[in-house]
Simulated assay, not measured.
Amino acid sequence: MFDVVRGFMLCCFGLFALAAQANLPSEELQLQTLQVYTCRSINSLLLLRGEGFQETHAAQLEKDLATLDGAVKAYAKADDALRKAHTEFVTQIRNGVSYGPKEEDLPWRYNQDLSRSLRELLNQIERFVPATADTNQIPLWELPVRVEYLATQYLGRAYISGLELAREQPQEYLGQDESVLVPLLTQRIDQLPDSDATKKLRTRWEYLSKALLDMNSKSNSGVSASGRPWAPIIVDRNARAVSGQLMLMSQQ
């Protein structure tokens, strides 16, 4: 009798384990979350500083950092290099919160330190991303990352005179600006199957992409290509909406 009960319990435990395993997010989803929330965290910091340390932006920053922290801890392949890069990134974010609200309150090397910590963390995550045969055909699950990275570039230009790209990595998105990434994203979004959701996505992306293309990142002038004022709050809001919708699509 004991053996029967024991066998039944082991069977149940096995089923529970399989069910739990089936409900775990895929590795692609985990990598997507890691990269998206790295960018969103820095975007929230820039909004917090640039918009006068409003409570809404402070709360959003904490939420983004918590999601990123949870993603790092949940990622089974996370090694010392990834965890170290994450710790350094969070340190730079916290430093940015601690400095005064004006741009002149920032240490003169802060842009470089923040840029370096961003590149290092994203590079550490990228080590685990499977290689793509066609670099011009970005997998659907990677599209939200590119959208958020462009938003990071835009907010960096708007608030702290820009963040440094990984120019030594021109084949990677970390070394690419809006002149490369926006056309690639437009092409991939146009290729998505038609639906009401896709139609709304394309409309929002068309609006967002115009702002991103106005970034003028190859210039050191600090002004947009059109001369229009920066619109970082609108860009961040729309980037989150576009990347969020793409994340949902990639998980279906």
Rank of each mutant, 00 (worst) to 15 (best):
G14R: 11
G14Q: 03
G14D: 03
L15Y: 03
L15D: 06
F16N: 02
A17S: 14
L18A: 15
L18Q: 08
A19N: 01
A20C: 04
Q21T: 15
A22K: 06
N23F: 02
N23L: 13
N23G: 12
L24N: 13
L24T: 02
P25S: 00
P25Y: 05
P25K: 01
E27D: 13
E27C: 01
E27Y: 01
E27W: 02
L29A: 10
Q30V: 07
Q30W: 01
L31P: 05
L31A: 01
L31N: 09
L31I: 07
Q32E: 14
Q32I: 07
T33L: 09
T33S: 13
L34F: 07
Q35Y: 06
Y37G: 06
Y37W: 14
C39Q: 12
R40P: 07
R40D: 15
R40Y: 10
R40T: 07
S41R: 04
N43Q: 13
N43G: 13
N43R: 09
N43I: 08
L46R: 03
L47Y: 06
L47K: 12
L48Q: 11
L48S: 14
L48M: 10
R49S: 09
R49A: 08
R49L: 07
R49H: 11
G50L: 10
E51N: 09
E51W: 04
G52Y: 05
G52K: 05
G52T: 01
G52S: 12
G52F: 07
G52D: 06
Q54Y: 00
Q54L: 15
E55Y: 02
E55I: 15
E55N: 14
T56E: 15
T56P: 02
T56G: 10
T56D: 13
H57Y: 11
